[in-house]
Design a protein around this nucleic acid. Structure first.
Lengths: 103, 103
DNA sequence: CTCATTGGTTTATTTTTGGAAAGTAAGTTT
DNA sequence: AAACTTACTTTCCAAAAATAAACCAATGAG
């Protein structure tokens, strides 16, 4: 997913993060406070458990998401935007605005 | 590239357009007035002729780019953002800003 | 001690996407 | 008429990404 040849391209870091069929959708859900593993999956019909888990871990490794386990019965997990992840908000907002106007 | 199940997701239209390994980079180049087929290819080392042609046609079909042939010697082709394509500017700009700050 | 529930992992397979290489086409220039 | 340049197209193949299905683990409830 990382294109080493394009390191000079000024949008490479964000393209790297947002690539992947489901990544933007996952971030959109979490940005909208839908942050439990199960409820994200429910809101994204068609995504497989594996893909969701892989993408969430990818975003966690990139410092975009934080993962919190709650000792409920059964234990639940939430994913939240980190401070770094929150800075993606303008991009997500502009994506929503565009989609509303030009779809 | 179109996910029919997610038609309700408010960012689906733009995710559809920007998906693909090279699409955002191509748009970035054209947004920055680098709009000849050959010069886009030069600025994106690693992209194949096939991929560039496929992506350009995709964006043309989506109404994002316009294609113009010039009767020079040899004939050259430019790609320009349409009015619709120009409205992607806020997204591209926010992507650049983020990348500069958080890479 | 079995069951239900959440949140995964693992393995194997398919789909999607991109790449390499060769060929095509149009319009000069020689 | 052959060569040169730009801008592709075509075919075939490889890699990457996603899917399906089965399984695993933690935690309590019954």
């Amino acid at each position: 997913m990382d294109n080493h040849i394009l390191n000079e391209c000024p949008i490479q870091p964000v393209v790297d993060i947002l690539s992947g069929k489901w990544t933007s959708y996952i971030l959109w859900e979490i940005y909208n406070k839908n942050n439990h593993y199960g409820s994200i999956k429910k809101q994204l019909p068609g995504i497989s458990t594996r893909t969701l888990a892989v993408r969430l871990k990818f975003l966690e490794n990139k410092g975009i998401l934080s993962r919190t386990v709650f000792n409920t019965n059964p234990p639940t997990v939430t994913y939240d935007l980190t401070n770094k992840g929150l800075t993606l908000a303008p991009i997500l907002k502009s994506m929503k605005t565009w989609s509303e106007l030009y779809q």
